[in-house]
Structure formats: structure tokens, C-alpha cells
Simulated scan of single mutants.
Amino acid sequence: MCKKKLYYIGFLFLVMLLSACSSRGMDGGAITAQDLPSEPPKADITATIQNSSNYEMDDIIEANFPKVTTVEGDGSNAEVYATTRFNLSELSTLLTDTIKPDEISDVKNDQQILIYPNEFITLRESEADNSVLLIEVASDEFVRRNYSPNFLSTYFALRLLDDVLDVDDWGKRYKGTYSGMGGLGTPSRGNTTFRGGGPGTGK
């Protein structure tokens, strides 16, 4: 009887371990080309985006790239998409030529942020596979409540962020810890956590 119990406990432990590995695999930084469904050719995606009649960048991204995860934040969620068809420079140029953003950051640490009305679009290579470009779409509300001021201030002046997020002294009033793409950490406001130590599922 004791032996059976030990086998059962061992089996449960194995299932829990495999589940934990699966959750970590959904972290934006852990996405590889094998995790993505088949994509149309680059020329087709480019033509579709350039000829889009939609003027909302979040809708354009959702229509053209596979979603890999959803990040649950305080008050709202962010969506992370991915592609193997473009590098950062190519996709940044395509998106900004299609709809001009209000602000464009410099590329730092292989990452760039585009600010559109009501949303932040972040482009970054996957840490696990540099052939995969990650695309995070986060609303102003998500950024305001969850993003780390220290992180964002490396891309934009805090005064500019105060204006964009419509909060005086945003960096002092909000103390989020999130730095993009389902990275580990939890927002410091409210009761929200990022499931699995990072993003939730979302494929």
C-alpha cells in the first residue's frame, strides 16, 4: 500500500513539473520559431498592412500576426504577438510608414517602443530565438498601472510620459515593476499577479 502511495505521489509531482515547464514556455522571452503557426510570406503580410483600411494599429497587428500570450495586469491586459518574417528594423519601418506614431524611441537593448494614441507597441527579439520578433500591444491604462517608470524612462523622458499617460508625476505616483513581453515580476498596485510568474496563456 505504501509503495502505491509513493508511485502516486511521484506521478503527481511529475505532472506538476511538466505543467510548470509548459507555463514557463509561454513567457514572451521563451518563444521560439517552433511555437508559431505557419505565417504567410513576408510580401503578403507587407501588402496587407500597407493596404489596410484600418487606422488602429492594434487591430492591424492582431489581423496579421499570431498571438502568443496575454499578460494580465492591474486593470487591463497586454497582448503579445510574434513573427519570424520581419526583423525589428523592417517591422518598425513598415508600421511607422503605415500609421505614423506620436512618439518613436531609439532602439535600445534590441528593443523599440512606438507610442500611438491610446497604446504602446513594443518590438523586441525573443531571448530564446533571435529569428522571432515579439510585438507587445499595451493600452495606455496597462502601461500607466503596470510598467516600471525606471524601465520606460530609458526610452522616453518622464515629462513626455506624464503627458502621454495623462498623469502628473506618473513616475512617482505609480510604482509598477513590469518591463515588457511577459517578463517576470508583478505589478505593485492592486491584487493582480502575472500568472505563472509571467504571462498567462494566449495561443
Rank of each mutant, 00 (worst) to 15 (best):
M1H: 12
M1W: 12
K4D: 12
K5E: 15
L6N: 10
Y7C: 15
Y7A: 14
Y8W: 13
Y8K: 08
I9K: 01
L12P: 00
F13P: 00
L14F: 15
V15I: 14
L17A: 07
A20F: 08
S22Q: 01
S23Y: 15
S23L: 15
G25K: 09
M26K: 12
D27R: 11
G28V: 07
G28E: 06
G28Y: 06
G28D: 07
G28T: 05
I31G: 00
T32Q: 13
Q34T: 10
Q34Y: 10
L36Y: 02
L36A: 02
P37T: 09
S38C: 01
P40Q: 14
K42Q: 02
K42T: 10
A43R: 11
I45M: 09
I45N: 10
T46F: 05
T48N: 12
T48K: 11
T48H: 04
I49G: 14
Q50G: 02
Q50M: 04
S53D: 15
N54H: 07
M57W: 03
M57K: 00
I60K: 05
I61W: 01
A63Y: 04
N64V: 02
V68E: 00
V71Y: 05
E72V: 11
G73K: 03
D74Y: 13
N77P: 09
N77T: 12
A78L: 04
V80F: 03
Y81A: 03
Y81L: 01
R85K: 15
R85C: 12
L88H: 01
L88P: 03
L91Q: 03
L91M: 07
L91W: 06
S92K: 09
T93D: 12
L94M: 05
T96H: 03
T96N: 04
T96P: 00
T98H: 10
I99H: 09
D102K: 11
S105P: 01
S105T: 08
K108F: 04
K108N: 05
N109T: 13
Q111M: 15
Q111A: 14
I113L: 05
Y116H: 02
Y116E: 11
P117E: 01
P117Y: 01
N118M: 08
F120D: 00
T122S: 10
T122Q: 02
E125R: 13
E125P: 00
E125N: 15
E127R: 12
D129I: 02
D129R: 07
S131T: 14
L134Y: 08
E136C: 08
V137Y: 03
V137F: 00
V137G: 02
D140I: 00
D140L: 08
D140S: 10
E141C: 04
R145W: 06
R145V: 07
Y147T: 06
S148T: 05
S148D: 02
S148P: 04
P149N: 01
N150W: 09
S153C: 12
S153E: 11
A157Y: 14
L158M: 08
R159T: 03
L160I: 14
L161T: 01
L161R: 05
L161G: 06
D162Q: 11
D162R: 06
D163M: 13
D163C: 09
V164E: 08
V164M: 03
L165V: 02
D166N: 11
D169P: 02
W170P: 11
G171K: 06
Y174D: 06
Y174F: 11
Y178Q: 08
S179W: 03
G180H: 08
M181C: 11
G185P: 14
T186R: 08
P187C: 01
P187E: 04
N191E: 15
T193M: 00
F194T: 13
P199L: 07
T201D: 10
T201H: 12
G202D: 04
